[in-house]
């Protein structure tokens, strides 16, 4: 990683630590939401940005994780076990959802995952005996660890930030290991990857399962943050929202989800003055940004930085070649 990259991350981390001391409770709630959604976006970035598997199901995994945590803790299961269970269940379901990706790609996969999201929503809404139906689940507890009660907004924020840090490190490690290279290979040219001995089937399923697991962890944190969950929070719009975060932030860039989630969480607040028009403006911004910078904000910054530092500055994206060579 370049020195500028390390510096940027250090500043980002410092900001995340200082911020809550300068914010009112609602501000702390917002940055907690940022930390929580960033985890889900990191997962989607792994599946979509690195491994190239289009998924419109990340919102559903956040939902599955949230309900798992809420229902297990209400049944008396200790928090840490419930938390891990949220991730493990999503890992398993994500693995299964990966199977269609072995048969179909691109738009077909988008529709399979879209259908999956809608089915999960229907299950959450209709299976009242388990999920409470449209009334949802409320009074979800926040955890206590060795006497540290995370009930207060500030404490819970630092808990979320801690989980985000651990997950970020784990994902960073994975991406710099041969797995990261294999995921990119899967995205760029699965046929060639297969001919070089890559078990593309296993890597595809892994990309789906791990991405979904992070969705599950995010959901578990989400449940305790808002303390009341209902099916509508995990409908298709949540998946679209996460997708926009990843793309706007910069898909396939490590810092992309952090930036994308920040924009998605903070923009509505900054745009309070526009009252009801916030969503229109957000949508318009995305439409304007897409043709100008389809690689997202982090991509834009990185390209800008590179063209400043390299003398030749020939930053021609190579995707044209990839598409021509793909089967």
């Amino acid at each position: 990683m370049s020195r500028a990259g390390v510096l940027a991350i250090a500043l980002f981390a410092l900001g995340a630590i200082i911020a809550p001391f300068m914010l009112k409770p609602f501000g702390i709630f917002l940055i907690s939401m940022w930390a929580v959604l960033t985890i889900a976006a990191i997962g989607l970035n792994l599946t979509l940005g690195y491994a190239g598997q289009v998924s419109m199901a990340q919102g559903a995994f956040v939902g599955i994780g949230a309900y798992t945590l809420a229902l297990l803790t209400q049944a008396g299961v200790p928090y840490p076990i419930a938390f891990v269970a949220s991730g493990v269940l999503c890992f398993a379901i994500g693995w299964l959802l990966g199977y269609p990706a072995l048969r179909v790609q691109h738009h077909y996969l988008a529709f399979v995952t879209l259908a999956f999201t809608t089915i999960v929503f229907l299950l959450l809404r209709n299976e009242e005996w388990l999920t409470g139906g449209i009334y949802g689940v409320n009074a979800i507890k926040r955890p206590v660890f060795f006497g540290w009660n995370t009930g207060k907004a500030m404490d819970y924020y630092f808990f979320c930030l801690g989980v985000l840090s651990v997950i970020s490190f784990a994902v960073w490690w994975m991406l710099r290991s041969p797995w990261g290279r294999a995921f990119v290979a899967l995205r760029e040219n699965p046929v060639r990857a297969l001919s070089l001995g890559l078990d593309t089937r296993r890597y595809t399923l892994m990309a789906f399962a791990i991405g979904s697991m992070l969705g599950g962890f995010s959901g578990a944190l989400f449940a305790s943050l808002v303390q009341f969950i209902e099916p509508a929070s995990f409908a298709l719009n949540r998946s679209f929202d996460l997708l926009l975060m990843v793309i706007v932030g910069g898909s396939g860039y490590f810092m992309g989800p952090f930036v994308g989630a920040l924009i998605s969480v903070l923009l509505p607040e900054w745009m309070r003055i526009t009252e009801g028009y916030y969503l229109i403006i957000y949508a318009a911004l995305v439409m304007v940004m897409m043709p100008l910078a389809p690689y997202g904000i982090v991509g834009l910054i990185e390209r800008g930085y590179k063209s400043l530092t390299t003398k030749r500055g020939q930053q021609k994206p190579a995707s044209v070649v990839a598409e021509r060579a793909a089967p």
Partner: peptide, 11 residues
């Protein structure tokens, strides 16, 4: 490519 256009149409 296909994906950015999908995003645009969602927006």
């Amino acid at each position: 490519g296909v994906l950015p256009l999908v995003i645009s149409s969602i927006a």
